[in-house]
Computed example of a mutant assay.
Amino acid sequence: MAKELFHNAVQTLFPGNCFEELLINFNFFHPTCPKAVLSRGLGFAITLGSILLFVPQILKIHAAKSAQGISASSQILALIGAIGTASYSYRSGFVFSGWGDSFFVAVQLVIIILQIFLFSGQTLLSVGFLGAVSAVTYGVVSQMIPMHVLTWVQAAGIPIVVTSKLLQIFQNYRAQSTGQLSLISVFLQFAGTVARVFTSVQDTGDSLLIVSYSTAAVLNGLIFAQFFMYWNKTEADARKKRN
């Protein structure tokens, strides 16, 4: 049993005969293995990092007992995009390292959206939202939601991602501040989507995923840049609240 688990773990990180080529034959100039192993390793690193991606954001909202400056519409659209990517990839049989971050991001976005509803006094809306998410999850795992629907959702994820990020960008621009947005979470999101472009090209070759991650990387970069554009205003707002 232990031997089988070890073999599966090795195959996950070293696809095909890459373990023998790289670690036994020391064939570091193999035409495909170095890129494949780098992609798998990077994918696992992104997935592990995504477990804590929005934890700073969640803690910041909890500490402030407020989600001011965070667009609920943006977060909901981002959740649809994350669920779409995770569901599409899961049902397509892609390796977990290629989409696990979308799963963990979706879980954390659910928490953030619940915080937005609860701290704004919309308790019933939060209950309905949680019920809808549970129903979708069951539909994907039980395969009650057909694959062509998931493909459509993944394709629709591109304009959804664009709309989601533009809503947050516009809200920041209108307030001339990034509000309760977490610099750490936004940076990790930006870095993760940039890395995902590479892993998607290498591991899946799926054009829907590649375009989706490329678009998200550009827009996440714009939101990250807004922290430095509105830094003085955001700091001034924070000082006013402390006083």
Score class of each variant (00 low, 15 high):
86 A>I: 01
59 L>K: 07
34 P>C: 01
181 L>K: 09
51 I>D: 00
188 L>V: 04
69 G>M: 03
94 F>G: 02
29 F>D: 10
66 S>K: 07
38 L>R: 05
83 I>T: 08
132 A>C: 02
142 S>M: 11
243 N>A: 13
208 L>P: 02
203 D>E: 07
132 A>S: 12
171 Q>V: 05
235 E>L: 00
148 H>D: 08
35 K>D: 09
208 L>V: 04
114 L>P: 00
4 E>L: 12
232 N>K: 13
20 E>D: 13
129 F>I: 06
184 I>T: 15
20 E>N: 13
128 G>D: 06
148 H>W: 14
173 Y>I: 03
155 A>W: 13
204 T>V: 03
163 T>Y: 15
18 C>T: 06
105 V>N: 12
233 K>H: 13
123 T>Y: 15
223 I>R: 01
26 F>M: 10
79 L>S: 08
211 V>G: 01
40 R>S: 00
71 S>K: 06
17 N>E: 14
14 F>D: 05
241 K>V: 11
61 I>N: 12
228 F>Y: 07
181 L>D: 12
87 S>W: 04
202 Q>H: 03
132 A>N: 02
182 S>L: 04
161 V>F: 14
52 L>W: 13
156 A>G: 15
200 S>D: 09
177 S>M: 09
89 S>F: 01
208 L>H: 06
78 A>N: 10
89 S>C: 04
163 T>R: 14
54 F>D: 02
44 F>W: 15
214 S>Y: 14
54 F>E: 02
4 E>V: 10
96 F>Q: 06
2 A>K: 14
142 S>F: 10
241 K>G: 00
225 A>H: 07
186 V>C: 08
15 P>G: 00
112 I>W: 06
37 V>T: 08
5 L>Y: 09
188 L>F: 15
111 I>Q: 12
172 N>G: 11
137 T>K: 08
94 F>N: 03
103 F>M: 15
217 A>Q: 06
191 A>N: 02
197 V>W: 03
232 N>I: 00
168 Q>H: 12
191 A>Y: 04
149 V>C: 11
213 Y>T: 15
176 Q>L: 02
10 V>K: 10
187 F>R: 12
193 T>Y: 11
164 S>W: 12
29 F>E: 09
117 F>N: 14
43 G>M: 03
212 S>A: 05
57 Q>S: 12
45 A>T: 08
214 S>I: 11
23 L>W: 09
167 L>C: 10
92 S>R: 08
29 F>V: 05
133 V>R: 05
39 S>W: 01
41 G>W: 11
131 G>A: 11
46 I>R: 02
224 F>G: 06
229 M>G: 01
142 S>K: 14
147 M>V: 14
110 V>Q: 15
163 T>E: 07
241 K>A: 13
81 G>E: 04
196 R>D: 03
13 L>H: 10
101 D>M: 09
60 K>N: 09
11 Q>V: 01
152 W>G: 15
